[in-house]
Design a protein around this nucleic acid. Structure first.
Lengths: 251, 251
DNA sequence: CCCGTACAGTTGTATGGACGACTGGACATA
DNA sequence: TATGTCCAGTCGTCCATACAACTGTACGGG
């Protein structure tokens, strides 16, 4: 194990540098699943940091699922294979890029409207507040993948209609021009079959299997930023999730 | 705000007591969404604990999604409505209990077998290792809900065949008699339509929409404990998920 | 009126120390 | 051999303190 790897002048916190170093060793196989990770004391002594700092590094490693701790025994590399496939919150554009496809969109509607009650409720809108409505067919590898209808509070993204090129990445626009970072989303998925209209847009047979998603996205403050209803071709996508049992992760 | 609420003799950690107290205030509406939560200093002074302990309480509150912190400003109650509906990792029996239904099962198979390659791979089995195989139709409110086929490494639960009453809760049996706590699971969902055989078991028409799940459950060590393939009636269930965008939750 | 500075309040990072609880092995004892 | 005891190693909790980074406000000078 190396000696001097920490840059104490860096803006990157020490515990984060340590965590990254350990992550790297796990990824590279230098530390193998089931093996003991350096203990808090050992890190503390070797890298000349306080034990609390070493501890913070190990905890962040655990919270990322790369390791787990056992009181009295030590901290071990997890046997879980962490494919990056399990779902984070990705926009359509990002998801396609991840998969190496080039995303395209056919815009069906892009306008400012009065939302119905379900949308207003989901977005915590006041009375008479309007939304930007964007309905698109999403295309990957030259074939339709889904129909997506998004609603955004007009108050939070003024002039979106004028500024945004509606075939581009909405999340990117929100981040770059409005400083709005989507942080999490609640999503409901249903298994269903395509209606006639949907089948036509998705270029599948009527009554083909589809996913129906209803998603509400939030900023990290909990402010709702987007309400989306979408219909995905069942033959072209899977939903991959990682579920945890107890969420009392403590720190 | 009260004065003495902490039991310093308790086995329950101080930071956890504080976190529970704040959670309660949020749930009861005493602290409203968007409002400022007591600052680290304030908690520290009021409850006579160190700032680090107060900090740990607030962090655990944040990691549960009930609040969020902003450097230089403070910690605020999240606007997110935290319905408990979003999916944790629940066994079928637990899920039913949550919904107030009484779960029942019809056991189709319960035996020890040599797994196929996919199962052996998913469970990290050695060559010639066997699994306990359990196939059941799950019934809720007197109607079939899903067909479920579970595989467990026989090595980890010896005598399960003799001991376990296969219409009961598998997770409970694993926890109580083997000390095996399921901690997380990776799950793949597909939208599809019922085959003839499935339709008969589920009492739906052929080609009705269904979910197909493939799930691998793990202990907190990352050791795979269960591989399940299941088919759910599309008209009787939804999949509710909470997705987060950045998993670098740090500590 | 506008703008920069100063300041108080907050969270983020880091130090160093202390004790408790638990694990596993070495060791002594019956 | 079997059993209990002790002990070193480890993580969990908690303390007191310090400084850095950031925010919003108040104040004063131009």
């Amino acid at each position: 194990m190396a000696a001097v790897v920490l840059d104490r002048q860096s803006v990157v916190p020490l515990y984060f540098q340590i965590q990254q170093r350990l992550s790297e060793q796990i990824r590279s196989g230098e530390l193998k699943p089931g093996e003991l990770v350096p203990s808090e004391q050992e890190i503390s002594a070797r890298l000349r940091v306080s034990r609390m700092t070493a501890r913070q590094a190990l905890k962040s490693l655990c919270s990322r699922g790369l390791a787990y701790s056992q009181r009295g025994k030590g901290t071990f590399v997890s046997r879980m294979k962490l494919e990056k496939n399990f779902r984070q919150l990705l926009s359509f554009s990002e998801e396609m890029k991840d998969r190496g496809s080039r995303p395209r969109s056919k815009v069906l509607a892009f306008k400012r409207i009065h939302p119905d009650e379900e949308v207003a409720e989901a977005l915590h809108l006041g009375p008479a507040e309007e939304v930007i409505f964007l309905r698109r067919v999403r295309i990957a590898d030259s074939a339709p993948l889904c129909i997506e209808a998004a609603n955004l509070p007009a108050r939070l993204c003024p002039e979106l209609l004028e500024r945004f090129e509606p075939s581009g990445s909405l999340y990117r626009e929100l981040a770059e021009h409005y400083g709005l970072q989507v942080h999490m989303a609640d999503e409901v998925a249903e298994a269903s079959v395509a209606t006639g209209a949907e089948a036509k847009l998705l270029r599948v047979r009527r009554r083909s299997p589809v996913f129906r998603f209803t998603r509400t996205a939030y900023l990290h403050t909990g402010q709702p930023i987007e309400f989306v209803e979408s219909t995905y071709r069942g033959d072209r996508c899977k939903v991959v999730n990682r579920l945890t049992r107890h969420l009392e992760i403590v720190s």
